[in-house]
């Protein structure tokens, strides 16, 4: 299943580049809007990179199930004797690998463009590494819920915002703490704790949501 998803993504490699490009564009816009002052940019760099990455992921979440619904693959998934939660877990993992990982790879570059100090960048990456899978997992539940509907783009953002707020807070908190030279381990541990819970329960919730959404 994982292989299938990765293979599919590879056949459509152009699509992977889109969120990355989007993230770069948004990040480039900020200095224009705020002025090229180093100190100001430096102070908000961590937050900008985080929010940009999350928005770019939101862009890809929407399409997570659409093609599978259109060609009927999702029916075959639901009918498969394998546990649906496991299959969806694989799908979420593939989504993270194809859409979040490229963004994380490019994040140091974005951070450097905004003059984020070098020692903070590893913390930012760590925070992203923990926050992005959380977003994939939570997003998958919501996308599954909207699977049976036609219009979902804006609705998805509306539903996702309250759910991903803790992730943003802790991730940004860690980066800010690192920037001020304060210990940043506490928010990172909270983030990790939430992620562990999400890994355990989100695929199950996603399967439940999908069953509700597909049933006509």
């Amino acid at each position: 299943m994982l292989r299938r998803e990765l293979l599919l993504a590879w056949r459509r490699r152009g699509d992977i580049a889109m969120p990355v490009l989007y993230a770069v564009l948004v990040t480039v816009l900020f200095p224009f809007a705020l002025g090229p002052e180093d100190t100001l940019l430096q102070r908000i760099a961590g937050g900008i990179v985080l929010v940009t990455v999350l928005l770019a992921m939101l862009l890809t979440l929407d399409a997570m199930f659409t093609s599978d619904i259109e060609d009927g693959s999702l029916e075959q998934l639901v009918l498969s004797p394998q546990p649906l939660a496991l299959l969806l877990g694989m799908k979420i993992l593939a989504h993270w690998l194809t859409s979040a990982l490229p963004l994380i790879v490019i994040a140091p570059l974005l951070a450097a463009m905004l003059h984020l100090p070098g020692p903070v960048i590893p913390v930012l990456l760590l925070a992203l590494l923990l926050a992005t899978p959380l977003l994939s997992l939570l997003g998958a539940i919501l996308v599954a819920l909207t699977a049976g509907t036609r219009r979902s783009g804006m609705l998805l953002a509306l539903m996702l915002l309250p759910l991903c707020m803790p992730a943003v807070i802790f991730a940004a908190g860690a980066v800010a703490a690192a920037q001020q030279g304060l210990p940043w381990l506490a928010p990172i541990s909270w983030l990790a704790a939430i992620l562990v819970l999400a890994i355990a329960f989100a695929p199950l919730a996603c399967a439940g949501a999908l069953r509700i959404a597909l049933d006509a």
């Binding site: 299943m1 299938r4 293979l7 056949r11 093609s67 259109e70 029916e75 075959q76 998934l77």
Partner: peptide, 22 residues
């Protein structure tokens, strides 16, 4: 809806189906 992925080859599609079936 046939449940075939348009980007995969016929053989790959069948292999996926067999994998899903377990």
């Amino acid at each position: 809806q046939l449940g075939l992925k348009a980007d995969l080859t016929a053989r790959e599609n069948l292999r996926v189906a067999a994998g899903l079936h377990g």
